[in-house]
């Protein structure tokens, strides 16, 4: 069982999560790209932090768990940027971009 710590007001946190959900749905309706990115992904990040910190009690957790999670997210970044350098580059010779001409799936069938 978790170590003794005061439980936060979970109902209040849930209420704020619902408000953030409403904003994340309403934001993209404005059809302004930067507003869409901020409301959809920025708010997803805030909601994630709230769920992790309050519901998963990460705010009371030992540092080793924080290190574990930070390492995981860092490696995801390494994966993304490591692969992106190749995936995003379709210039040069001997290249056939099957994503752009939508033939990747057909090639596998």
């Amino acid at each position: 069982m978790s170590e003794a710590h005061a439980h936060p007001n979970y109902i209040k946190i849930w209420f704020w999560l619902l408000i953030l959900l409403a904003i994340s749905v309403a934001g993209p309706m404005l059809e302004i790209p930067w507003v869409t990115v901020v409301t959809a992904f920025g708010i997803a990040a805030v909601k994630t932090f709230m769920v992790a910190a309050k519901f998963m009690h990460l705010q009371f957790e030992k540092k080793i768990i924080w290190y574990l999670l930070i390492i995981c997210v860092t490696f995801l970044g390494v994966f993304y940027f490591g692969v992106a350098a190749d995936i995003m580059n379709s210039s040069g010779q001997q290249w056939k971009d099957c994503i752009a001409d939508n033939t990747c799936i057909e090639q596998r069938l």
């Binding site: 994340s24 993209p28 990115v37 959809a40 992904f41 997803a44």
Partner: peptide, 13 residues
């Protein structure tokens, strides 16, 4: 799901 929701449902950015 908090991450799947915007990329699949709301953010056709």
């Amino acid at each position: 799901w908090i991450f799947l929701f915007p990329i699949l449902y709301i953010a056709n950015f």
